[in-house]
């Protein structure tokens, strides 16, 4: 399946992926309204991890073995058997955040205001996820595993470094 991969060697930790993720999941899809009018704001589903010169954005890996899905008490988290995308059904989510604890990547974000777990949904309404489309340094790629440019980009790599 197509996933969002990060190339840490060119991630400049600007955080624009976070900004545009928030906008893509807002009501208005307008950056200024999303930040200034919509309260509480939507949390970003992607977070830049940084230590010294090492940085990379991290979002849901849509794992083959989705521990979040296994841990979900209400069945709100599901892995689509065809697309492989892991989604959270806000109707069913009770905000227990067991998934937040279960996720090996810390990629599920607790939305404390709405008492819901939120996570990367790969922007189903967009051709390319907002984080990838708006990365100014092409540090994010949306691909089904082939690695353009021959760069080592593996979800496992990002996890292993944590």
């Amino acid at each position: 399946m197509k996933r969002v991969y990060s190339k840490e060697e060119v991630c400049i930790a600007c955080g624009l992926c976070q900004v545009h993720c928030l906008v893509a999941h807002s009501e208005s899809k307008d950056i200024i309204k999303a930040y200034k009018k919509e309260t509480p704001r939507q949390p970003s589903r992607i977070k830049v991890q940084q230590k010294g010169s090492l940085s990379f954005p991290l979002s849901c890996r849509h794992c083959e073995e989705p521990w979040c899905v296994y841990s979900c008490l209400t069945g709100a988290l599901q892995k689509d058997p065809e697309s492989g995308i892991v989604t959270v059904d806000a109707e069913k989510c009770v905000g227990c955040f067991t998934c937040v604890v279960a996720c090996p990547c810390s990629a599920i974000i607790p939305d404390f205001h709405r008492k819901k777990a939120v996570k990367c949904d790969l922007c189903p309404h967009l051709e390319t996820p907002a984080c990838v489309a708006n990365c100014p340094n092409q540090a994010l790629i949306f691909t089904d595993g082939a690695t353009p440019g021959g760069t080592k980009v593996a979800a496992e790599g990002a996890v292993a470094r944590r």
């Binding site: 060119v10 991630c11 400049i12 930790a13 010169s53 340094n137 540090a139 440019g149």
Partner: peptide
């Protein structure tokens, strides 16, 4: 702009592909 520097946080700003 990550050009004339050897600070690793800044040199990443030039992506050789771009």
């Amino acid at each position: 702009w990550g050009i004339c520097t050897s600070d690793l946080r800044l040199t990443k700003r030039i992506n050789p592909d771009i």
